[in-house]
C-alpha cells in the first residue's frame, strides 16, 4: 500500500473521487446531500456502493457521470477531470422504462450512442449484434422496449452500455425494479460481462446481499449528508454463483458486517464522529 494511487485491491486507480461535496440550494433552504466523499476505483475493478435509502447514492453517481456538478471537490477519470459526461463512461439507470427510447427498436436504442461516436455502419452493426448476444437478446433486436419484460428491458440498457465500449460502467440501482429471480440472473450477467470485457464497474445499490455478492470491494455510505463509513474488500473467491457463494460462511460474515454498518449508518450522519471499533472507516469528521 505504498503507492498512493493504488486502491485496496492493489489496482492502479482509474477513477478518482476527491472531496466531493454536493449541496442543493433552492427556495430558501439548502440541503447538503453529499458531505465529503473520497475514494478511488481501480482499473478493471468491480466496486459496489451501498448505503441506506436517501444516502445520496444517486447524487453521487450523477456527479461521477458528469451529469451533475459537485459543489466542491473533483472527479478524475484516467487523469482527466470530469466536467461533463465523459465519452468513455456508460450509465445504466434504475428506471429502465424511462431510459430506453420507446420510439426506437431494441437495435436502434443500442445503436444510437454509437452513431454519436461517428462509427462506421458495419462496425456499429457488429457491436450491436455482439452486445445483444452477450446479454442474451439476439432474437429481440427488432422489438420495441415496451414489448419486453422489465428484466429484458434492463438487459437492453446493459447491452447499450456494453456496445458503447466504456472504460467505466456506472450502474444506479439497476435491478431494484425487477423481480428476485430476474435479479439473480442479471447479477450473474454483470459478473460474467465484467470478466469477459475487463471493464471497470461502479455499482450502486441499496441491497446489502447484492453488494457483497457482486463486488470486489464494497463502499458503505452513511446517511445524508453522506460520507464513506467503510471501504471493505470482499475476499470471496472470484468464481461466484448464487447457490454456493450465498450459502458460504464467509458470505454470511461479510453480509452481517455490512448490515451492521448500514444499521449504524441509519443513525449516523456524516458530521458525527465514527464510533469506536468501526473498521477501516474513512469518514470525514470535519465539524459541521
Amino acid at each position: 500500500m505504498s503507492d498512493p494511487t493504488a486502491t485496496p485491491t492493489g489496482r492502479t486507480a482509474l477513477l478518482d473521487v476527491a472531496k466531493v461535496q454536493k449541496t442543493y440550494t433552492g427556495q430558501g433552504r439548502t440541503v447538503e446531500a453529499v458531505r465529503d466523499l473520497t475514494f478511488s476505483v481501480g482499473n478493471g475493478e468491480l466496486v459496489c456502493i451501498v448505503g441506506p435509502s436517501g444516502a445520496g447514492k444517486t447524487t453521487l453517481l450523477k456527479v461521477i457521470a458528469g451529469l451533475l456538478e459537485p459543489t466542491s471537490g473533483t472527479v478524475t477519470l484516467d487523469g482527466t477531470q470530469v466536467t461533463g459526461p465523459p465519452p468513455s463512461m456508460a450509465v445504466v439507470f434504475q428506471e429502465y422504462g424511462r431510459s430506453l427510447f420507446p420510439w426506437m427498436t431494441v437495435e436502434q436504442n443500442v445503436e444510437l450512442p454509437l452513431k454519436q461516436k461517428k462509427m462506421a455502419k458495419e462496425r456499429r452493426a457488429e457491436l450491436v449484434r455482439d452486445a445483444l448476444e452477450a446479454v442474451g437478446l439476439a432474437e429481440a433486436h427488432s422489438a420495441y422496449p415496451w414489448q419486453l419484460s422489465g428484466g429484458m428491458q434492463q438487459r437492453v440498457a446493459i447491452a447499450r452500455a456494453v456496445a458503447y465500449q466504456p472504460q467505466v460502467l456506472l450502474m444506479d440501482e439497476p435491478f431494484a425494479a425487477v423481480d428476485a429471480q430476474t435479479r439473480a440472473d442479471l447479477e450473474d450477467l454483470i459478473r460474467s460481462l465484467w470478466h469477459k470485457l475487463g471493464v471497470t464497474i461502479l455499482f450502486v445499490t441499496h441491497d446489502i446481499d447484492e453488494s457483497v455478492y457482486l463486488g470486489e470491494r464494497v463502499l458503505v455510505l452513511s446517511s445524508s449528508p453522506t460520507v464513506i463509513m467503510e471501504d471493505l474488500t470482499i475476499d470471496l473467491p472470484d468464481e461466484r454463483n448464487q447457490l454456493d457463494t450465498r450459502s458460504s460462511p464467509r458470505f454470511a460474515e461479510l453480509r452481517h458486517h455490512v448490515y451492521e454498518q448500514i444499521q449504524l449508518a441509519k443513525h449516523r450522519r456524516g458530521g458525527e464522529p465514527a464510533p469506536a471499533g468501526a473498521t477501516g472507516a474513512s469518514a470525514a469528521t470535519t465539524p459541521a
Binding site: P85, S99, P113, Q116, Y164
Partner: peptide, 14 residues
C-alpha cells in the same frame, strides 16, 4: 423525461 434526458447526455446525444 428527465431520465431519458440524462441518458442522452451521458451517451453524448446532444
Amino acid at each position: 423525461d428527465e431520465v431519458l434526458s440524462d441518458t442522452s447526455r451521458s451517451y453524448g446525444v446532444s
